[in-house]
Design a protein around this nucleic acid. Sequence first.
DNA 1: TCAATTAGTCAGAAAAACATGACCACCCTG
DNA 2: CAGGGTGGTCATGTTTTTCTGACTAATTGA
Lengths: 105, 105
Amino acid sequence: MTTLNDFSEPESCPATNLLKLLAGKWKPQIYRLALEGPLRFNTLLRQLPGSNKQSVAVALKELEEAGLLQKTIIKEKPLHIEYNLTEKGFMLVPVFKQLENFSAE
Amino acid sequence: MTTLNDFSEPESCPATNLLKLLAGKWKPQIYRLALEGPLRFNTLLRQLPGSNKQSVAVALKELEEAGLLQKTIIKEKPLHIEYNLTEKGFMLVPVFKQLENFSAE
DNA sequence: TCAATTAGTCAGAAAAACATGACCACCCTG
DNA sequence: CAGGGTGGTCATGTTTTTCTGACTAATTGA
């Protein structure tokens, strides 16, 4: 079957909601980097050339609020903060694979 | 395997490009309607309450340029234009299914 | 104690996306 | 030939997103 569900009302379309969440300028890259291991704020800034504190901070907060990232305070030598992908975050992997496969033809 | 490919340069990430393409305010709905059959400009406007000519025209043009929609002049009774999903366009179906499945839990 | 690194916040400016209303050209019907 | 329907464009304005630079506050090392 090639049909999708019917979502007449604009806001009841789940695909739209997820697209909104992921469509920020830096969020896909942040997600991708998160797949490789824990993120740290300043490191992330350096890994995203052209980005800025403000935007990255907002992106992290929104990804956290969406339950894709978890913020943890690491009480070690240079006391810092880590952002890790949650279980829900890892569930996005197949979605990304699909996104990649599509445009890669 | 849970790993994704490496896309160090921001612009070489296909997922990002596709997200950009689909993330417009009206594009997901337009895509969804296109799944149900050929689109016509004025009809589409009426089907998308709150939209406007300008935005819909831009969305159609971008989806066409991306190769998801094909514009055809129908030389019949009330000479008009149709937008149809291309083969590439239909290939997006599984992506949308994934997007929906994810946010639906 | 001074300076650097940690992870941010805030106000304001710039840029991008989206909306509004006027206008246009073609076709068709009466 | 007037009026409505076709499918738009264009200039402008508003709204949303993103960026910039200044600032903060706690921790750490010299």
